Computed example of a mutant assay.
Amino acid sequence: MGTLAWWEVPARLGLALALGAGIGLERQWRSRMAGLRTNALVSTGAALFVLFSALTPGDNSPTRIASYVVSGVGFLGAGVIIRDRGNLRGINTAATVWGTAGVGVMAGGGHYPVAALGAVTIVLANVVLRPVAQRVDRREVQRDARPRSFRLRAVCRDAEEAHIRALVVQSVAAGGFALCALDSEDIGGTGRVAVTARLVGQDSGQLEQAVSRLSLEPGISSVSWRVGDDEEEP
């Protein structure tokens, strides 16, 4: 078998299969799309390509073959990434498949300790870093969930004041905001009134939608909002 001993090919393939299966077992346990068989096949396939370069005389450089493997696995990894309601899912599984190919390349090249170390590192990254990532996500959600104060200001004609006040109350209630105060102030000499609402809520996107709806009212000349209510409107 070229420059390889008779036992090296099955040893390299066996190691690639075992290490890929070990990585895939963790993915299978967590019910991910690319599980036991997928990772085992990716690792074995990568090892076969590298073995081909080792068994074929000529200029079939193992490093060049490895670069082709990386490109091919990139397309495979893209297949496990799906878009769900604007969010991407499966990126971690795709990265795992990509790393599994690297383990197979190392095993196919005869670098047994490095291949084993790579497989262990990938599994540890998926197992150990998972609770760390979840804890960071929970802190981010808790931080975003804290209520904030907002100030909404709408300028309208005097005759439309009562109607606009009712619309403001209706809009902020529909957005899930708690209304703390609702004030009206005459803008001297203009025949207009500034209706100011002080609110408490979480989602500024809902407030933006409420402002957009109010801006369509013919009696309103301007409407705006900002975070906080401790400063006077200029």
Rank of each mutant, 00 (worst) to 15 (best):
Pro113Asn: 04
Met1Lys: 06
Arg32Leu: 08
Asp203Ala: 10
Ala115Tyr: 03
Val123Trp: 02
Leu4His: 02
Gly72Lys: 06
Arg198Ala: 02
Ala107Gly: 08
Gly205Tyr: 04
Asp158Leu: 06
Gly201His: 05
Gly191Pro: 05
Arg148Ile: 06
Gly191Lys: 14
Val42Asp: 00
Leu152Thr: 05
Met1Ala: 09
Val70Gly: 12
Arg157Pro: 01
Arg135Cys: 08
Pro10Gln: 11
Val103Tyr: 01
Thr96Leu: 11
Leu88Ile: 15
Leu19Val: 13
Gly219Leu: 03
Ala197Arg: 04
Pro234Val: 13
Val169Asn: 04
Ser43Glu: 09
Gly228Trp: 03
Val155Lys: 00
Val42Tyr: 02
Leu17Glu: 03
Ala119Pro: 05
Val50Gly: 03
Gln202Ser: 10
Leu48Trp: 01
Ala16Thr: 10
Thr63Val: 11
Leu51Asp: 01
Ala101Phe: 07
Ser215Cys: 04
Leu216Lys: 06
Ser212Phe: 07
Ala178Asp: 08
Gln134Lys: 10
Gly201Gln: 00
Val168Thr: 04
Leu207Gln: 01
Thr96Asn: 05
Gln206Asn: 12
Ser171Cys: 07
Tyr112Asp: 15
Val200Trp: 01
Gly108Phe: 02
Val80Asp: 09
Gly191Asp: 07
Leu19Arg: 03
Phe75Leu: 10
Gly24Val: 04
Arg135Ala: 15
Leu15Ile: 12
Asp158Ile: 14
Thr190Leu: 05
Asp186Ile: 03
Ile23Phe: 00
Ala66Pro: 07
Leu214Ser: 01
Arg85Asn: 15
Val168Ser: 00
Leu117Ala: 15
Ala133Gly: 09
Ala34Ile: 11
Leu199Arg: 00
Ala174Leu: 12
Arg153Gln: 08
Asp229Phe: 01
Asp186Asn: 04
Ile81His: 08
Thr196Gln: 03
